[in-house]
């Protein structure tokens, strides 16, 4: 089944103020998300990242500014129709406990009046996609599933009607680290394969670095930096970004690990050579200069491995 390519999203000076609050929860935030791009909204709790996310499917209506989805101002669209084009995954999953896995996944296709055969085929396809065997899981109820399995169903439900955009609000915060890493890898792979635009909220710097093509960092409702992970690491645009990286110890971990710790089997391709004991932090400079691959040499100048930026982040994040 062919999914439509992801839609672009544009925030134009979006502000949100909750009634009874003195300050803006989101304050004149503006940035663009390209079709099919994986963007992470990063910041501490209360920074407005979830609020900003919820303006995209109009669960929150901005007080000022515009949110454009696929070049259309969402204020001019019917909110319910809009939501059916946008997948939505939340931390607490929110599965419907009186429905089976299959019925949960089928919610949006049913709302869209797909015929029975198409829905059934789609359920099996989606369960395969999130690595749940349809034969075993279709007819189970949510309370019979582990936390990780529930979130897989949550992801399948969000993807059911081939959304152009997937909104994920701290989706993996409640599952343990091993399951979280597996789910991160899978969602990255699914989004890449389907071409879906993803907006992903987290407070976890490692998760942001692992997943994002670009990271939007929010502090008290304001956008302080919007950049690729490499740029965030090497050129933090504000003291707040530095302190965010500090609290998560990312830079120190980059300094402590060396090329040998992160390298993968040697690959072909042009790229500078580094010695195996060079720290990952120094290697970031090579990526900054535009290298896609860095080759790792041992003491005898033999090539023993290769590294991409993704490998560096994975090595740091898994520690």
């Amino acid at each position: 089944m062919n999914s439509p390519a992801g839609a672009p999203v544009r925030f134009e000076r979006v502000s949100v103020r909750y009634s009874g609050s003195q300050t803006e929860a989101v304050d004149a935030v503006a940035f663009d998300v390209r079709p099919g791009e994986f963007v992470v909204l990063l910041g501490p709790s209360g920074c407005g990242k979830s609020t900003l996310l919820r303006t995209v499917n109009r669960l929150v209506v901005p007080n000022a500014g515009r949110v454009l989805v696929g070049d259309k101002d969402t204020a001019t669209l019917d909110a319910v129709q809009l939501r059916r084009r946008i997948g939505y995954v939340i931390q607490a999953v929110g599965l419907f406990s009186h429905m089976t896995v299959a019925q949960n996944v089928a919610v949006v296709p049913s709302l869209l009046h797909w015929d029975r055969a198409r829905i059934d085929a789609r359920i099996d396809e989606l369960l395969h996609m999130v690595r749940l065997d349809p034969a075993r899981y279709r007819d189970r109820f949510p309370k019979e599933l582990s936390g990780g399995e529930q979130q897989r169903v949550g992801v399948a439900r969000a993807l059911a009607a081939e959304p152009e955009i997937l909104l994920m609000d701290e989706p993996f915060a409640a599952v343990d680290a091993i399951v979280r890493h597996a789910l991160q890898d899978e969602i990255a792979e699914i989004a890449r394969r389907l071409g879906t635009t993803v907006l992903f909220v987290t407070h976890d710097v490692d998760e942001a670095l692992r997943l994002a093509a670009r990271i939007a960092i929010l502090e008290r409702g304001r956008l302080v930096q919007y950049d690729a992970p490499l740029r965030i690491l090497t050129a933090p645009a504000a003291p707040f970004v530095e302190s965010l990286l500090d609290t998560h110890d990312v830079v120190r971990r980059l300094s402590l690990k060396c090329a040998r710790d992160a390298m993968q089997p040697p690959r072909d391709g042009a790229g500078p050579d580094v010695r195996e004991d060079v720290s990952l932090r120094e290697i970031l400079n090579d990526f900054l200069r535009g290298a896609a691959t860095v080759h790792v040499l041992d003491g005898n100048a033999r090539r023993i491995g290769s590294l991409s930026f993704g490998d560096v982040v994975a090595a740091v994040a898994s520690s």
Partner: peptide
Amino acid sequence: MAVTDAARGLGM
């Protein structure tokens, strides 16, 4: 809350 929030978010 998560259940009704999810239901709204899915376009019910």
